[in-house]
Design a binder for these strands. Sequence first.
DNA 1: TTGCTCCTCACGTCACGTGAGGTGGC
DNA 2: TTGCTCCTCACGTCACGTGAGGTGGC
Lengths: 162, 162
Amino acid sequence: MTIVEAPAVIRIGAVAERLGVTTRTIRYYEELGLLGSGSKRSKGSHRLYSEADIARLQEVLRLRNLLGMSLEEIVALAEFEEARADLRAQWEGDPSDAERWCIVNQALQIVERELELVQTHQKALTEFEGELAARRRLIKKRRRELAAGSAEEAATAPPAGA
Amino acid sequence: MTIVEAPAVIRIGAVAERLGVTTRTIRYYEELGLLGSGSKRSKGSHRLYSEADIARLQEVLRLRNLLGMSLEEIVALAEFEEARADLRAQWEGDPSDAERWCIVNQALQIVERELELVQTHQKALTEFEGELAARRRLIKKRRRELAAGSAEEAATAPPAGA
DNA sequence: TTGCTCCTCACGTCACGTGAGGTGGC
DNA sequence: TTGCTCCTCACGTCACGTGAGGTGGC
């Protein structure tokens, strides 16, 4: 009933391949404390990851690759979230509604900040797309003119190959 | 009539401020050959930029910041375009329709490749946005439950401040 | 037992950041 | 003349890349 699913351990090489990074990147993020200090691995033994760890890692990668955040900024965010996780432990034991309220509001602020950044980048991308599309129209127009010009100047058709 | 506008020279500091980068970045891009080798500056004298130079620089910055391209990849693109610019000089003088056709088609390929990349990133951002929005809904739901719970358990209202 | 993947140093690299020390134009 | 911005080295840093040399599990 309330039995927890076996957390499906995955090794670092498979994780790296799934997320499109190298194992070095994952180790570096761990070194910076970005991977929740889980597992308590004994030195020299293999790193093992659950699906939750992978989701966490993917979020870090998106914050970096899609939103352009520095790892320092992401670490700061993570420390916020870690404080949240620490308090969540108390959540189960001794609630204290005032604390819960505080935690939930902080979590909301973080997510809304990330949503803001996503929208900023979407806007910038859309603007860039517009300029590229305009350039494409111009090029296509020139190509049409070229085809028409060479057709009227001479009997040679526009070169189709090579 | 066909008089060219004075190219409105701007110094590196103003350019950097407008584009939100440091002067070091601009000098580094020049060092890599990303800024079209224009101006033929005498060593030690000030760098001066036209609006066209700024537009070029902004494109490089967008390729890097929005599409995540490495400077090496951007340099490769730039070499394509430079070959295009070289051939464009011939464009005016001695056309040769076959060459023109080739140039236009290459330009079209570059722009379409960039548009593809823009769309890939837009898709990834939209996916990320969806997940963040789902998380936000979950947090808000918890907050509502918390407010309702504390209202029924006791007479204390949910703490509104701090 | 044999590969294969993993491990820990540790140095290299890319894309700039950050002064040091000096020169040039309103 | 006095600031201010610019210049050229040149070393530092961030986020990994890339071996070297060795250990552990199907």
